[in-house]
């Protein structure tokens, strides 16, 4: 559960930041310290996602300077951060043939003039390659949606969401054959928290594009429902053999309609109670 709390924590901070950007005056004042420094860091400054230890006997430490350090080597070698980025980039060219596997990273390593053993710089093995792909797709999606922002602004919210989902799924199309194995890897216990985090980032961005500004419980329900729509569409796409994934786009539309019906049923229920006057708890049922 601690992991989930962390996930939502990231999301809340991100939303808070957006509220600041949108210029909510009260919130803006409340979230600024007297000195004028913002309480909420920009998303780029958020700490990298890390698994809570949960009392594991086996602990991992990579120290403060291993992550993305770019210090140059006295003996002329490359820095670890650069090598990681190069490896990830090169590995993606082998994914088409070898899938999201260690073999793809081995091949990339050899291509760059390293020993295959260099693939071990990824402590969580191929999961880190898959995460790189997820991040890459997300930024490409954001970029494309940004370019089409005028077109999107004229759409209804439902259309906006459907467009975002479609854009993101199209990015996956080249690697759809390799995707079942990636899903398998990312659903392994050590990677579950991280894959949920990436899913959260994705649906959060989609709602951002759709112009969502909710700060109440809707914030959670919207993201959860969209996460459901997105993952089920993704799994549908993996099995879709129709031309240009025609069936998948229909499936996305059907899923969104279903979710909207669910949301409508919820608000209908609330309206029903509201129209009859809020029932006071226990009234008429006391024995």
């Amino acid at each position: 559960m601690a992991g989930l709390a962390t996930l939502w924590g990231h999301g809340l901070r991100a939303t808070g930041r957006r509220a600041l950007e949108c210029g909510v005056p009260g919130l803006s004042r409340a979230l600024h310290l007297h000195s004028g420094t913002p309480l909420l860091p920009p998303r780029s400054a958020l700490p990298p996602f890390s698994l809570p230890t949960l009392g594991r006997v086996i602990q991992t430490s990579s120290g403060p300077n291993t992550g993305r350090s770019c210090s140059t080597d006295a003996s002329g070698g490359a820095s670890e951060g650069d090598v990681r980025q190069e490896l990830l980039r090169a590995s993606m060219t082998h994914v088409g043939k070898l899938g999201f596997t260690m073999e793809a990273i081995h091949a990339a390593g050899r291509e760059l003039g390293f020993s295959s053993a260099v693939a071990n710089v990824f402590e969580r093995k191929e999961a880190e390659l898959i995460e790189h792909f997820l991040e890459d797709c997300r930024s490409k999606m954001n970029q494309e949606l940004e370019e089409r922002s005028e077109e999107i602004a004229s759409m209804k919210i439902r259309e906006k969401i459907a467009t975002a989902v479609r854009v993101r799924l199209k990015l996956m199309a080249p690697h759809v054959e390799a995707w079942p194995r990636a899903v398998y890897v990312m659903s392994q216990p050590p990677n579950v928290a991280s894959s949920l985090y990436h899913l959260h980032l994705l649906v959060d961005d989609m709602w951002h594009v759709a112009g969502d500004k909710s700060t109440d419980l809707n914030w959670y329900s919207k993201r959860m429902l969209l996460a459901g729509v997105y993952t089920s569409s993704e799994l549908f796409m993996v099995q879709d053999s129709s031309r240009d994934f025609e069936e998948t786009w229909h499936f996305v539309d059907r899923q969104i309609s279903r979710v909207l019906k669910l949301g409508k049923a919820g608000s209908d229920l609330l309206n029903f109670f509201a129209s009859r006057g809020a029932p006071s708890p226990g009234k008429g049922t006391r024995v």
Binding site: S61, G63, T66, D73, N120, V121
Partner: peptide
Amino acid sequence: NGFRGVRYENLLDGVVAIHSGFKL
């Protein structure tokens, strides 16, 4: 000694530790 990406992992709370590094 010139290794990069050095990290370690404790087993059994540090009774044994696995250190690893790369020649980059």
